[in-house]
Design a protein around this nucleic acid. Sequence first.
RNA 1: GGCCCCGUGGUGUAGCGGUCUAACAUGCCACCCUGUCACGGUGGAGAUCAGGGGUUCAAAUCCCCUCGGGGUCGCCA
Length: 597
Amino acid sequence: MLKSHSCGELNKEHVGAQITLAGWVDRRRDHGGLIFIDLRDREGIVQVVFNPGISKPCHEIASEMRSEYVVRISGEVALRPPGTENPKLATGDIEVIAHNTDIINPSKTPPFYINEDIEVDENLRLQYRYLDIRRARMKENLLLRYRVVKFIRDFLDAKGFIEVETPMLIKSTPEGARDYLVPSRLHPGKFYALPQSPQQLKQLLMVAGVEKYFQIARCFRDEDLRADRQPEFTQLDLEMSFIEEEDILSLLEELFTSMVETVKPEMRLIKPFPRLTYTQTMERYGTDKPDLRFGLEIGDLSDITAQSDFSVFRSAIAGGGKVKGICAPGCATYTRHQLDELNKIVKVLGATGLTTIALGTSVGSLDDLTVEMLRSVAAKFLTLDQIKEMAGRLGAKMGDLLLIMAGKSELVDMALDELRREIGYRLKLADPKMLAFAFIWDYPLLEMNEKTERWEPMHHLFTAPKDEDVPFLDTAPERVRGKHYDMVCNGYEIAGGSIRIHTSHLQRKIFRLLGYTDEEVDERFGHLLEAFDYGAPIHGGVAPGIDRIVMLLAGEENIREVIAFPKTQSAVDLTFNAPSSVTEEQLIELHLRLRDD
RNA sequence: GGCCCCGUGGUGUAGCGGUCUAACAUGCCACCCUGUCACGGUGGAGAUCAGGGGUUCAAAUCCCCUCGGGGUCGCCA
């Protein structure tokens, strides 16, 4: 090693030691006589003193040093002179007196600050990601990510799981997300696909008798990007044999509880994790990934408003829709401008508008509410009793603001979910130190695709139906619930899993229900179905998204901040400028010709 | 594919029809400085205001298009 210690580890115990350090110049303070260098490596920062009275050559070299120069320094660890200690620095009691030094490599002036935590244009950060990762924020995020993955490996190892790698070059399956394709050189006109997840592979490992499998698995989906979605992302892929839903849920709860308590002890959890059925969460929050850090639950007002004189409400219900609302506590004083902002939020989602009812501006009992205290365009169409009943159902008090949506059920739910999160954010109800994990289960197995008028799996093709619902597969498929569960946290879907189908006849039955021909099934899933005929155990699993978990633990709002080399929203890697053109020779080898369009 | 937001010295921001020959902070360069730690002091260099077109007597500022970035709907079994 070219260094004997790391900068950050030095303390009073090292006083008197002769050491060698190597790292980057974080800052230089040149006093003409004395020069101070803050030397940085991965572990931290230490002050080095260049005193011409101790070494003239060292002092001359130090005067050439600039930010981000890579330097090596040999010298002695010394206590700082009394009064010059720096309590802001972990190594602030000591300093290194340089006896020998050399510049290993100079550096151009960096395009942005390495030593300051200020916002920098993300394009620049990504283009110079290797400099960005030198900065504290990315360094800490990557360290946290490593600790999370390390914790997972240790935890599952102790539980008897083994990690098995599965191929990255597999077979394209048109269902689900769009595949990333890899052309085959040896097989003209044929393609591999990168895995969307190792789903079928891990099921085959269960048939193979592995019993407890996991993998920190890279997954690829060629879909549009979001703050929480990258084209390649990392899942903890996990599968177990001879289990039921409860086994996975309790394993997840123990894993994530102990993980947070180990890697982020300052964050708070709700224990045990709440469990909501799909129906419950949709009714109460309008989404299957609710932020449970705060209440503001949705109330269904359809029965109250069905007979009202307000045509917006009446016609929505007559058209098969719903009238639902939430209460924004203390927001009765919202200005026209603030109400417009809320209106805009729902309009962007495609809703025609939002009905607001401000319940007075003073504190007091709802019983004292009078028509004069109301502020709402809908007030003249509604009776005072109707408004009181609505307010009561939404848990409103005087001084609150009712936000009411009318229309198609899905749109109403989506808009109220959005409004709920907006109000939660504005009123600072979402504690940033809280991780509100929860399980959502009892999902419908299937949903009807309105366009194609075909049943589609809500989760995926291999989810087992609840035993008691199996008879409905033939008579009322919409009533069949799947053995599927999601884990959510703070409004994000963190994991999805299920107990799988483990017999070929039930799996074939599902395929038929989804409209596949026998030929299609054999071509695409023959390998899996045949495997089921060789003694497949009851099995199931789950796949938590590592990027999202680390994002939440790090307090970040997008997963690019916890990925070393992420892609932009247009799926471009700015560090390498990928994707890029390839040579004609490469195309010829792959039997490809580019289309003009 | 739709909608919304952003683009000003290296970096971060201000300026939002004329006083902009573009301001401030920091960084950079030079000189001074032996106890600083976001060192300090003096001086200096550094910007086709993303690109193109238009409106106007006059555009960083208003309008249109393009490019790039971000957020989101659709999409993501």
